[in-house]
Design a binder for these strands. Structure first.
Lengths: 228, 228
DNA sequence: GTGGCTCAGTGGCTCATCCACTGAACCAGC
DNA sequence: GCTGGTTCAGTGGATGAGCCACTGAGCCAC
């Protein structure tokens, strides 16, 4: 049971500004109006606006220069993967590309995990896989699936793969209710995922890569198109 | 010629807080002192502290709950790739892992680019490769190299690969002066990179993957160990 | 044991003000 | 005519005080 999301004024304002930017209403290179004017226009204080700006600056959508103003960055060219949640919220046509990368990188991770997993990590994978089968709601199955993928990333012995896995999940987990298709039946979800874990346990990199690709392709299809 | 970096109070404070967190002085799950106390302790206003907090919250190091307090997140487990610049700054032993992922993902990107690059993209790659040879400082060569990689990512036709490429570069470009070894001779840098672009132009995915791996392995070795 | 209320402490936000920086305009000197 | 110095208006960075909303713990009545 998760706490209900609560929106602050800064959240609302950030969302508004973000949508305006992503919708192209402020082209890359253009300056936004001065903070004082913008805050007045939105009916908030400048401090509140600066907090929203701070988020967009950190996300790479804006850059501010002391004494000059706040400019829209060429985020399409220069932006990082942390932008993905924002981009997905703006336009769902990002899903196809995210899933392609998820498939490619996920297969790579499974292959590395097969080569490097410790006995303890193999055991953890088994347990987390079991948790998929015993989870009691579709949402819980989905989140249990995520934990298996995190464990796979950890089993690569490369922490950057863990962070990358989280980043890809962060792209769509906020809207995961719309992508819950593959997780409505715990037994089916478990059966789809089990070959990946088995190949990693067997230390078979090729099999792990193939199994991960098959798994991610199948779940992606269900998520994008609906059940077969 | 780049503007000199300028540090604000928020920058300094964010860095201090970040170091304390990454150094484990506030373990995951623990609450930081209340904002008012912390601001007093650091000799800044609460507004300034809140800005620094905002950055760390967005980076996934902290989470704040209205009325409750600000807690350190289990960022090692849940954090995303946008944490990489912070992590590198804290501890250079991340470089090895970043470069491994850079190699794996870079090879994948080159393979996809070979399959999908348009004629216009191939032309752009050629031009950007030329810019590596004609750049006038090691720093400029290095940044020109980055532009080639961005163009490769664009040539995959998958925008998420562009963002991912930026994220990996964002991890170490702020400290790129320490990694400038492969870029001190424009002609040598160009010669190392040319086979990647050639394979992409030839539409040969296997060759592109192998060339990218060789390129990234060679440059990584120079960056980590020094010239051969 | 449960629900309602109070309270102290927390974060969220407002407001007003001052300081530091920037770019443009203007002027003096060469 | 060009360069360097100064001024000024407008920008963002930061301060400080105050009020409001939320939270969790404790207490009390039923």
């Amino acid at each position: 049971m998760e706490a209900l999301p609560r929106e602050t004024v800064v959240d609302v304002l950030e969302g508004r500004l973000r949508e305006d930017i992503l919708a192209g209403r402020h082209p890359a290179g253009s300056y936004l109006p001065p903070e004082r004017r913008l805050a007045d226009g939105y009916g908030v204080t400048r401090t509140t606006l600066k907090h929203a700006f701070g988020r967009l600056v950190q996300a790479g959508l804006l850059e501010t220069r002391h004494g000059v103003g706040t400019r829209v960055r060429d985020f399409a060219r220069l932006g990082g993967a942390d932008l993905l949640p924002m981009l997905v919220r703006h336009s769902p046509d990002w899903f196809g590309e995210i899933f392609e990368v998820r498939r490619d990188v996920g297969a790579l991770i499974a292959e590395r995990a097969a080569a490097r997993a410790t006995r303890a990590q193999q055991g953890e994978l088994r347990e987390l896989l079991d948790a998929v089968r015993t989870a009691e709601s579709a949402d819980a199955v989905q989140l249990a699936d995520v934990e298996v993928h995190r464990a796979l990333a950890r089993a690569t012995g490369n922490r950057v793969y863990v962070l990358l896995t989280n980043t890809l999940f962060n792209a769509y987990l906020p809207v995961r209710a719309a992508l819950v298709g593959p997780f409505t039946e715990p037994a089916a979800a478990h059966a789809r995922l089990a070959p990946v874990v088995a190949a990693v346990e067997a230390g078979d990199g090729d099999a792990a890569r193939r199994a991960a690709e098959a798994y991610l392709t199948a779940t992606e299809r269900i998520m994008l198109d609906g059940p077969a």
